[in-house]
């Protein structure tokens, strides 16, 4: 059994128990799910060419699961877009292709052609240039190329302080910039998705979810996630205090540097040379949640990109980083 198919939640409960809250109010996960579905439907009804950004991570898995529910029995009326850097973990590509085949959804993959040509990579060009060119520029290229006027993303308000004020429907200029002063007030369940010429909309159905909500929902709904989230013996080297997995032979090793097998897992997934692993023995969903509740470093800490200054995510957002 592959880890993708891992079944470590209790046997799926009877439909009536799970789907029908019976008398009384809804649980927090039911309310969050219903809100996300409402957002999906509203966005699709008010746009001409929607797309869902799919990064293969756990939040994308939840987002895709909610999209499948929102339009059931129809399929989601939009394609998935993976803005690829060619430097993701191999396990992420395998997982992506399997999910797309299993669910029968359309997937578009975009790789910034300039990066392909120049061979942009984090070792020779640095993490900032690598991320900016593959991801930020790549995303803009893909949106412009296909003429998408609305893009779903999996960002959450609890991830970072500057995101606490992000709208569910976030307006971007023709240059894909985020202007904190031009964001629209959002009242009740009413979202203003209309655009002036050239503007586009980013929509975040998971805005009100926390990391714990996401894990509990994955557990409750048995949503498949990339096996890298579960602890296993993996070859890693230690660099600047981070454990980097040697995922393929493109990774240059320093003289005398020898990968060692350690039991590690990843709390967040990105380009493998830029994603730090944590030492862990958590091999099931409950163990992951347990570990998360008992440790005290936040999720984004594993991302090398956030470390420079506390205002950095905000700057990236203004420049169009998702």
């Amino acid at each position: 059994m592959s880890q993708t198919d891992r079944v470590d939640a209790p046997a799926r409960r009877a439909r009536t128990e799970k789907g029908n809250p019976g008398m009384g109010r809804l649980t927090h996960l039911q309310r969050l799910e219903a809100e996300s579905i409402q957002i999906f439907r509203e966005a699709v009804a008010e746009s001409e060419r929607p797309v869902m950004l799919y990064s293969v991570g756990k939040d994308s898995s939840v987002l895709l699961h909610l999209a499948m529910k929102a339009f059931y029995p129809s399929r989601p009326p939009f394609p998935l877009l993976h803005v690829d850097t060619t430097w993701k973990f191999r396990a992420m590509y395998e997982f992506r292709d399997k999910i797309v085949a299993d669910l029968g959804v359309d997937l578009l993959v975009h790789q910034n052609p300039e990066c392909v040509e120049r061979g942009i990579n984090p070792f020779d060009h640095g993490s900032a240039t690598h991320t900016d060119m593959w991801k930020t520029e790549g995303l803009k290229q893909a949106l412009d190329k296909h003429g998408f006027d609305l893009a779903f993303g999996g960002a959450r308000r609890d991830e970072e302080k500057s995101r606490a004020k992000e709208r569910v429907f976030s307006i971007r200029s023709a240059q894909h910039r985020w202007d904190p002063k031009a964001q629209r007030p959002e009242l009740w369940r009413l979202y203003n998705a209309s655009k002036a010429p050239g503007q586009s909309v980013r929509v975040f159905p998971l805005s009100n979810w926390t990391e714990l909500d996401v894990w509990q929902y994955i557990y409750r709904e048995q949503i498949p996630i990339v096996p890298l989230y579960f602890a296993a013996q993996r070859p890693v080297v230690e660099r600047d205090g981070a454990l980097i997995m040697v995922d393929d032979d493109r990774m240059p090793l320093a003289p005398g540097e020898v990968p060692e097998q350690r039991s590690v897992r990843f709390r967040t997934l990105g380009c493998y040379p830029l994603t730090g692993a944590v030492e862990s023995n958590a091999a099931t969903l409950p163990e992951i949640i347990q570990e998360m509740l008992l440790t005290t470093s936040s999720e984004r800490q594993g991302r090398v990109i956030d470390h420079d200054s506390s205002g950095s995510m905000e700057k990236k957002k203004q420049e169009g980083y998702f």
Partner: peptide
């Protein structure tokens, strides 16, 4: 009352349904 988790016998305020 259609949902991806099966048809419901009853749905209440707050639920997203078809």
């Amino acid at each position: 009352i259609v949902t991806a988790d099966g048809d419901l016998d009853e749905a209440i305020a707050g639920q997203s349904i078809t």
